[in-house]
Design a protein around this nucleic acid. Structure first.
Length: 428
RNA sequence: GCGACUAUGGCGAAGUGGUUAACGCACCAGAUUGUGGCUCUGGCAUGCGUGGGUUCGAUUCCCACUAGUCGCCCCA
């Protein structure tokens, strides 16, 4: 076979068999969001490049090397969105939703994101994020709510081996104090660290703590922890968040080195990881945090915010790694088997009538023989098969066979819908 | 972006510098003339990721490209 076309690198087709799982996962996530009072927002897949430069931060990896940026025919600089928060905040500001009577405004979104990265298992160039944003409140209870919601989604789907990791980056003052302490700590011996870290010292010293290469260097162990530099207010906030999580019975661990890759975070940051064995490098299922300065950065009034984003691909991979079977619906209620020309004509009408009635019904379109039609019905997971041939037509009946038991009875065509409806109701 | 490994039918998977590219699953047909799941029989890659090169001859050797996987980086 000639491979004339191939899917672009790092992208995926979701085929029947898997698409049901996607639908199920998205359905659960949506309905839980609704239960927590979050409403859907849909924003474009591309935005002005400037939005991400300002929103995500131009020292971040995302902006520096991962954006799909292009110029349109009108000369505009546009970018396929690499994340969902900046667009939501843009919409929030643009539509003046800070004036909405619903405060805080609680939103969720679901859709593809794009990052130009080297693909591997669990990492794609186009991937789907499901995320929430709560704008307008700096109540630590909403930090806890957002984390609870994320955990709830995973648990509702059947994941067990997951871990919530939290940290606090503090407010601007705390971050500044910590940053100065970091620069002081590393400056003299910065040449001992990797080249990336030498750059980070000036761009974003916080990220040095996250470096995997230098993780065992003695300077790391003695590096100042952000948690020691939280001012009273920030410390009190973090304490309250932890207190609420505990009150909700949600287990968590604190990792003072949890530094997230986007510039806009302050105060609470968190990740949810999979602990399923054999789950590779892409163990981060969900990431989020508070971004109190972002709305202002995008041009709106000072408005606090917090949110998370989770990857559907990684969620499905985690379900797979834990061996969780999703209760996805499949199969047919009835497969109509026709033998002969006249029966075929009747089958076409009958199938449509049963579908209009609300049943999941199908028939043969390949001119197959009785036997092959039965086989097809079996393969499609049909609960019942309704067979019509000359004899049945004569009596205006169908021979209805229950596939699991093999039992077969004749049912008048006019009563077939009700017969099936009743029997299928009894099955579940 | 760097390093390593991999690429054979719808899927999994053997294999060789040279007449017919194993096998398993799936699929199709028949045994069973109107009854699926079991069994048996038969069928099913002029083709070995793409493009070049070496050679009398390459799926098998070499190069490039493409894609996947793993590690680094980063994250969702």
């Amino acid at each position: 076979m000639s491979m004339a076309f191939q899917i672009p690198r790092g992208t995926q087709d979701v085929l029947p068999g898997d698409s049901e799982k996607w639908q199920y996962v998205e359905h659960i996530a949506r309905s839980l969001c609704s239960r927590y009072g979050y409403q859907e927002i849909r924003t474009p897949i591309f935005e002005h490049t400037e939005l991400f430069l300002r929103g995500v931060g131009d020292t971040t990896d995302i902006v520096q090397k991962e954006m799909y940026t292009f110029e349109d025919k009108g000369g505009r600089a546009l970018t396929l969105r690499p994340e969902g928060t900046a667009p939501v905040v843009r919409a929030f500001v643009e539509h003046k939703l800070y004036g909405s009577p619903n405060q805080p405004l609680k939103l969720y979104y679901s859709g593809p994101m794009f990052r130009y990265e080297r693909p591997e298992a669990g990492r794609f160039r186009q991937f789907v994020q499901f995320g929430v944003e709560a704008l307008g409140s700096s109540d630590p209870a909403i930090d806890a709510e957002v984390m609870a919601l994320a955990m709830h989604i995973y648990e509702a789907l059947g994941l067990k081996r997951i871990r919530l990791v939290i940290n606090s980056l503090g407010d601007l003052d705390s971050r500044r104090a910590h940053r100065e302490a970091l620069v002081r700590h590393f400056s003299n011996r910065i040449h001992e660290l990797c080249p990336d870290c030498q750059t980070r010292l000036h761009t974003n010293p916080l990220r040095i703590l996250d470096c995997k290469k230098d993780r065992d260097h003695e300077l790391m162990a003695t590096a100042p922890s952000i948690l020691d530099y939280l001012n009273d207010e920030s410390r009190a906030y973090f304490e309250k968040v932890k207190q609420y999580l505990t009150a909700l019975g949600i287990p968590f661990v604190i990792d003072a080195r949890l530094v997230r890759g986007l510039d806009y975070y302050n105060h609470t940051t968190f990740e949810i990881m999979s602990e399923a064995e054999g789950f590779g490098a892409a163990a981060t299922l969900c990431g989020g945090g508070r971004y109190n300065g972002l709305v202002q950065e995008i041009g709106g009034p000072e408005t606090p915010g917090i949110g998370f984003a989770l990857s559907i691909e990684r969620l499905l991979a985690a379900l797979d790694a834990e061996g969780v079977e999703l209760p996805v619906e499949s199969g047919l209620d009835c497969y109509v088997v026709a033998v002969g020309e006249r029966a075929k004509d009747e089958a076409v009408r009958l199938v449509y009538a049963l579908r209009r009635f609300g049943l999941r019904v199908d028939q043969d379109y390949l001119g197959r023989k009785l036997k092959a039609q039965l086989k097809a019905a079996d393969r499609l997971g049909a609960s019942f098969v309704a067979i019509i041939g000359d004899e049945e037509l004569e009596r205006q009946e169908a021979a209805v066979k229950h596939m699991a038991s093999g039992e077969q009875t004749n049912v008048p065509l006019g009563e077939l819908a009700h017969f099936l409806h009743e029997r299928i109701g009894k099955e579940e």
